[in-house]
Amino acid sequence: MRVLVLPALFDEANKLRRLTVEVMQRLDGAGIDSVLPDLPGCNESRQPLEAQSLDHWRQCAAAAAAHFSATHVLTLRGGVLAAPPEMPGWNYAPVAGRQVLRAMLRARTIAAREAGRDETIEALQQTGRSEGVELAGWPLGPDLFAQLESAAPQPDAAQVEIDQGAIGGGALWLRAEPDESPEQADALAAAIATGLAPA
């Protein structure tokens, strides 16, 4: 058994970094292997983010699953959008690409307004689709932007949803400052270990 972990996207990846790693440590303690690759253009990847697309991320996630002989996949938040749909596993608090973009578009318009510039979400969306746009410090190319706009978790995927209510406590991706929660890591790891236990 080996679990491929697909991290949350962009700012949410930073907020959930500690939770992600803590879940992996707990799985390791329970004798379950897990691997956490960087999506191309994210975290320590040396690929440029602006050259990425969701299609490419999906191909890379499938390639990583094959390379590491992963049997299951755990996605966090927007990581679900890159997951191989036929792989069994879990989607923690899955989110549609549109919602991921909405918060980032909003952050940009709020920052612009503070700086005395007038930007609208609609105009930024058009720029995003045609030439790409930098949102909250993340340079998104037109392919990734457009594909995120229409990407959503697939209802017929082989993965089970784990929502925040099942984990308990306040969602860490919402925190203004990155934080950790040993209790939430315990709960998420336990849900996975239970799912992997022979019936």
Partner: peptide, 8 residues
Amino acid sequence: LDSMAVAG
């Protein structure tokens, strides 16, 4: 509470 946090 920066712009990203307000957006969230």
